[in-house]
Design a protein around this nucleic acid. Structure first.
Length: 943
RNA sequence: ACACCGAUAAUUUAACCGGUCAAAAUUCCCGGCCGAUAACCGGGCAAUAGGGGUUCGAGUCCCUUUCGGUGUACCA
């Protein structure tokens, strides 16, 4: 007879095969229909939960998302979902960075003739372009399972955001932090704009490396005694020959000593000035042999201050000045100084009242009044400058040098330093630098903690923030210039009024109306006059703000001014971005918030590493190792991608490859299958009617309740400290051990015992308890799979959506370490039994372990432990049909301890056709002669 | 150039403050089961990047080399 139908075999419709792609798409539609996120927030608000604010750093609205952005969004989503389930009100407002050069670039590229279009029209195109990518990325983020206020995100190009950006700038006008100056800044000749430090990339570049001699004009007799009639030269080194036309000085270090070396040059003797320690080496480099040069004298650098040299090819003096920036690791110890083309040059030039002379236009072309090189592009001119130097005999040596050189982050072309008039936010006014350094140390938790060192290091050395850009697509700097004298006018009240205009019409209005509109027609202020010349005619500033200012102001626009965030949003509990944002968004947000006296914008800052390939190299098109999120989602599903994001420690770089993903899918399948098996065994279980009280549970069951409760506590802890890889690790470890021990052991009772038997209900109670925890704690990481599992989980009073559920408090009574210890010791004995069974199996004594009779010859301690259990219990735990326990003699001594051993024989009796256990009771019943007594009782009961 | 981070079996992750033979799982190999079956169970193989040092004891601390990543930057 076939007894299969009399067993309680697992039954569930939860499919074994996930088919994630299509179920995910189905669920996304459902979530959209029921407005999942809105319901979650409404519910949390209603319950007056504590708040948790994760402020989204805006990705740039250009192009499709890549794995890096996907990783970031997934991590954020895990946190948001966890916080909600933990009973927080955790509103999440995603944002996008919409202004800026890259978008303007792409719009320019799409135009046939970019100069034929007005600024206003171009801005419209940029807005449209950005809006399109916001929609594309929004769909891509939602596809990852990310939830948030996607219906109403923050966009830096929203009118209200643009207005708030200007209002925040107004704070800097008011407190004097914003100033205008003519000084060297990074300039991209191709993009024709100034750039900030955050927009500069360093790349290897080959440059000329030349030594040039400047003839000394001044009389040096008061300093040093030299032979009459010899020309004296200051020898400098530079890698940017094109800056020589702008040379105004030569810098020496006041702490260095300089030698006068006589050299034999074409049978004539001339004298070179070089730094003492570098002289010999350098002269040899120039080709002079030991007997071809002679050191005549040595003087301190200070002595040469304010002497004059002659510019090699321009009729102008070059003054010798002193500066600490002169080093002796490279060069000659004499530094060519062009205050218009270098930071240090500018700084030292200030002391000597040298102008920031930079005769180069915005395309990087020499102005018309530059002798010899007018009209040339600066980098092209290098070779001509060298030619010129050769021609006039001023070139001492020419080489090539490979060095890292600043490049534009957008067009990847080399940058130049060029002094122009720009707007800056001062690091010193209002003690910005000092205050920022103080607050990052005292008020922010950095995870990992080296984040503090990183941002502090940057804050310590960074120059004033150049915030103006010579482009169209952005928020204008609301300054004016007097038409007759050029004096700038920038005013707090006017700016605040302009902000109101932006609120209504967007920043576009700045480009549509003329200066008069803002200054007079709007009645902002009447009859404004130039403070310098009294003229009433003004023109508008054409510069816009750095996009880092836009995004940096997000805490203000979103956390302080958004309807949903007001009063609860500031400061944020958490900022979470890639570790490159220490110089980006973390930095700009901080400077703005501190600079405008709003306080620290974040309480903690969490950073993650970058996505790299399986061998640890970064993904790049040229290496061909780029994987698109889309590809992974279609092949494996978003839950697998999320599991990947959770499974690795994101504080380091995150490796990804097809192999890694397919390994991960195995892990996923294990978790899914265990859930499925648990579901299958609960098909007839009603938790309110059938659950066994904890006190009454069998010991093994109590032991598992202990394990599960401990698991829940650990998971909660790891989630709270954002250690998702430990969450995954723990879930996974639990699932495998639970499956191979408890589930395996329980199968017999679950299948064979009567449906409503205590034993079966006791186990089901554990399964129900465990499944509830397993599904809930998988929720933040695997929202799709756990939603699906949840829908099959029969529990009274449960929410339809897992996302509406909360984690349950763990009853401390469920945790019993003493009990656990007993079972852990028992597990050791079980392992001995299992290995004996394995041996017997190899020897073909048995196949299934149920064919076995096990005789345990137990050592003293083990014997004591075993006698605390009933034989029937132990039989189940070892999954054998018969068991005998004996005390061990004196053999088997190892390290002075007695080790228990197990002997395996074929079990007596016959195999029960129903439960497969071997029993002597099989064949003793007339009514059911092929089954055991236990099964017979169950069947009789069934009737 | 400098600073910081990282490198654990074929793969991915563990190992608290330095403490016993470095823990899992997946892959692979061997076997069982055929009532979770594109499943389940048992067994086996296999690692601290290289070299030094501190220590009774080091994956863990220090130095160094290699590789990878990130950041900083006045190489004029």
């Amino acid at each position: 007879m076939d007894y299969k139908n009399t067993l309680n075999l697992p039954s569930t419709d939860f499919p074994m095969k996930a088919n994630l792609k299509s179920t995910e798409e189905k669920f996304l539609k459902e979530w959209d229909e029921i407005s999942l996120y809105e319901k979650m927030t409404a519910k949390a608000k209603e319950k007056n939960f504590k708040t948790f604010i994760l402020h989204d750093g805006p990705p740039y609205a250009n192009g499709h998302i890549h794995l890096g952005t996907a990783l970031n969004k997934i991590l954020k989503d895990i946190i948001i979902r966890f916080k909600f389930m933990q009973g927080y009100y955790a509103p999440y407002i995603p944002g996008w960075d919409c202004h800026g050069l890259p978008i303007e670039h792409n719009v320019d590229k799409s135009l046939k003739n970019k100069d034929s279009i007005s600024q206003v029209e171009k801005r419209k195109l940029c807005r449209k372009y950005a809006a399109e990518f916001v929609e594309i990325q929004k769909a891509e983020f939602k596809r990852l399972g990310s939830i948030g206020r996607y219906d109403n995100p923050y966009l830096t190009m929203n009118y209200s955001y643009e207005a708030d950006t200007v209002r925040k700038m107004a704070d800097f006008i008011k407190n004097g932090g914003l100033y205008r100056a003519n000084k060297p800044i990074y300039w991209c000749s191709s993009c024709k704009t100034a750039l900030a430090e955050a927009e500069v990339e360093y790349a290897e570049k080959t440059s000329p490396s030349i030594y040039v001699k400047f003839k000394i004009k001044s009389d040096l007799s008061d300093v040093v005694k030299l032979p009459e009639g010899k020309n004296v030269f200051a020898v400098i080194w530079t890698t940017t020959p094109w800056t020589l036309p702008a040379n105004l000085a030569i810098s020496l270090n006041p702490d260095f000593n300089y030698v006068f070396a006589e050299v034999n040059k074409n049978k004539e003797k001339e004298i070179y000035i070089l730094e003492e320690s570098l002289a010999e080496e350098t002269l040899k480099k120039f080709g002079f042999k030991d007997n071809e040069f002679k050191i005549l004298a040595e003087v301190n650098g200070k002595k040469l201050e304010s002497k004059f040299a002659m510019h090699p090819f321009i009729n102008r003096d070059s003054i010798l000045i002193l500066g600490q920036h002169v080093k002796k690791d490279t060069g000659t110890g004499l530094v060519h100084t062009a205050p218009g083309h270098g930071d240090e040059d500018y700084a030292v030039g200030l002391k000597y009242n040298l102008p920031a002379y930079a005769p180069v236009n915005n395309e990087g072309i020499f102005l018309n009044d530059v002798d010899f090189f007018a009209g040339m592009r600066v980098f092209d001119s290098n070779i001509h400058v060298i030619e010129k130097l050769k021609e006039i005999g001023a070139l001492v040596l020419e080489e090539k040098i490979e060095h890292s050189y600043p490049h534009c982050w957008r067009c990847k072309k080399p940058l130049i330093l060029r002094s122009t008039k720009q707007w800056f936010i001062s690091m010193s006014i209002n003690n910005l630098r000092e205050n920022a350094l103080k607050t990052v140390k005292e008020n922010v938790k950095w995870i990992p903690k080296w984040g503090l060192d990183r941002i502090s290091g940057m804050l310590e050395v960074r120059p004033d923030w150049c915030v103006s850009r010579q482009r169209s697509w952005g928020v204008p700097i609301t300054a004016f210039y007097c038409k007759s004298c050029g004096e700038p006018l920038i005013d707090y009240d006017i700016t605040m009024k302009i902000a109101d205009e932006f609120e209504k019409y967007g920043a576009d209005i700045w480009f549509e109306k003329d200066a008069d509109y803002f200054l007079n027609e709007t009645k902002i202020k009447k009859h404004i006059k130039c403070s310098k010349c009294g003229s009433e005619e003004f023109e508008k500033e054409s510069d816009i703000l750095d996009v880092w200012f836009d995004s940096g102001v997000s805490y203000f626009c979103v956390l302080k001014n958004d309807e949903d965030m007001k009063a609860i949003g500031f400061p944020a509990d958490l900022y979470l971005e890639g570790s490159d944002q220490h110089r980006g968004w973390f930095h700009s947000s901080l400077l703005i918030a501190i600079g405008s006296q709003d306080g620290t914008p974040y309480k903690s800052v969490l950073t993650h590493g970058f996505v790299v390939d399986s061998s640890g190299r970064k993904m790049s098109k040229s290496l061909g190792n780029v994987i698109a999120p889309d590809e992974i989602i279609n092949k494996y599903g978003a839950d697998i991608l999320r599991l990947w994001a959770a499974s690795e420690d994101y504080k380091n770089d995150m490796r990804i490859s097809n192999e890694i993903l397919s390994r991960l899918s195995e892990g996923y399948r294990k978790i899914r299958n265990t859930i499925r098996f648990m579901l299958g065994n609960l098909f007839d279980f009603d938790d309110t009617a059938d659950a066994v009280k904890f006190e009454d549970l069998n010991d093994v069951d109590k032991y598992e309740i202990h394990n599960i409760s401990l698991l829940a506590q650990n998971l909660s802890r790891h989630y709270s400290s954002y250690d998702f890889h430990l969450v995954y690790q723990n879930i996974y470890k639990f699932v495998t051990s639970f499956s191979s021990f408890y589930l395996d052991v329980s199968k017999d009772s679950l299948y064979v015992e009567a449906k409503n038997s205590f034993k079966r209900r006791s186990i089901q109670t554990v399964l129900h308890y465990g499944l509830n925890i397993l599904i809930k704690y998988s929720g933040p990481i695997l929202p799709f799979t756990s939603k699906e599992a949840w829908s099959y989980f029969n529990k009274k009073n449960k929410e339809k959506e897992l996302a509406f559920e909360y984690f349950d408090e763990i009853d401390e009574n469920f945790i019993d370490f003493e009990l656990a210890e007993r079972f852990e010791k028992l597990t050791e004995i079980r392992n001995i039994v299992l290995s004996s069974l394995e041996k017997a199996r190899t020897e073909k004594v048995i196949g299934s372990s149920l064919e076995a009779l096990v005789i345990i010859r137990a050592a003293e301690e083990d014997y004591k432990l075993l006698s605390e259990f009933k034989i029937s219990e132990l039989k189940e735990i070892f999954i054998v049909s018969a068991l005998q326990i004996e005390k061990l003699g004196t053999t088997n001594e190892e390290n002075g301890e007695f080790i228990s051993e197990a002997i395996v024989e074929l079990a007596p009796g016959q195999k029960c056709a129903r439960c497969w256990t071997f029993s002597e009771s099989v064949g003793t019943h007339n009514d059911y002669n092929d089954i055991c007594g236990r099964c017979r009782d169950v069947l009789i009961d069934l009737k």
